[in-house]
Design a protein around this nucleic acid. Sequence first.
RNA 1: CGCGGGGUAGAGCAGUUUGGUAGCUCGUCGGGCUCAUAACCCGGAGGUCGUGGGUUCAAGUCCCACCCCCGCAA
Length: 306
Amino acid sequence: MKIVFMGTPDFAVPSLQALIDSPHEVVGVFTQPDRPKGRGGKVQASPVKQLAVRHGIPVFQPERIRRDGVEDLRGLAPDLCVTAAFGQILSQEVLDIPRLGTVNVHASLLPRHRGSAPIAWAILQGDAEVGVTTMLTDKGIDTGAMLLKKSLPRDPAMTCGELTEVLSRVGASLLMETLAGLEDGTVKPVPQDESRMTYDPMLKKEMGEIDWTQSGEAVANRILALNPWPGCSVPWGEGRLKLLRAAAAEGAGQPGEVIASGKTGLVVACGEGAVAVTQLQAPGGKAMAAADYLRGHPIPVGTRLA
RNA sequence: CGCGGGGUAGAGCAGUUUGGUAGCUCGUCGGGCUCAUAACCCGGAGGUCGUGGGUUCAAGUCCCACCCCCGCAA
């Protein structure tokens, strides 16, 4: 089949790689325009673009595909479109172009966690099961009929970044299964149960503010869910102390009060229980184990974090 | 040329303003105490102070260049 791939970040890379390695022909790749990124404001190509370029696949980067990418897409005459974390909404006009439709790889167990940050929300809400769903894209946001689903138990120690990497590989293999199933007719679209659907908004920077009156588990999940972006932090000296990794812990005290500090990490009392911050990052410093940080910067028990 | 922080023992840091033979916490090794311990006491090993130049009687500390890491902003 002639396939056009649409995707942008690291999550989409394994799926594109799988298509490249398959007998299918990837005739074009759509990805977000290069944007200024990193220090010095240097523009940088998306991970998907970098991979496409390495394989000599034509790359298209319209600001809005539904506005100024339609003709390019039509010109590629794809049998099928595959999307994975593309970052743009497809119009009906775009969806009508591929003969066999558009398959999307979504990093949640639909109909839960529709939206652009499904993995973070799954962690944020403490889901026991996480996974990937392949689906036929329709005009709504993640509302199309489901094709295949793969779920796995969530490792409560994993950050969003780590889980994203795991699920990106799960997504790639599920995509291959899905395409094979569509070709031999063993995979049939199943409508989503609208009554059980949840739509989660994009992550915002403000979500990184810690509310110590929440339970220790909730605080730990927030820290994990928002790593690497936007990250949780607390005011610290001139800047902010970033909290990168944590786990629910035993203990009690005033919310925000440090109740243990040392080899076990930084244990902070919460509204219910406590949270052990195990990895953090000080202004200007690298990410490091909390125990390492505390050797050079002791934080006495009793300190109150905002 | 977007703004800014930092590179000193295995780890995390202080010391740089006022140049003068390198220090703290932890780890590690050896010994001691203890029913016992992530406890305590004693002792030891371990550092070309990011790299290359320069100034100086003397440079971690001052000057110049370069490399690497990180935060903000996007």
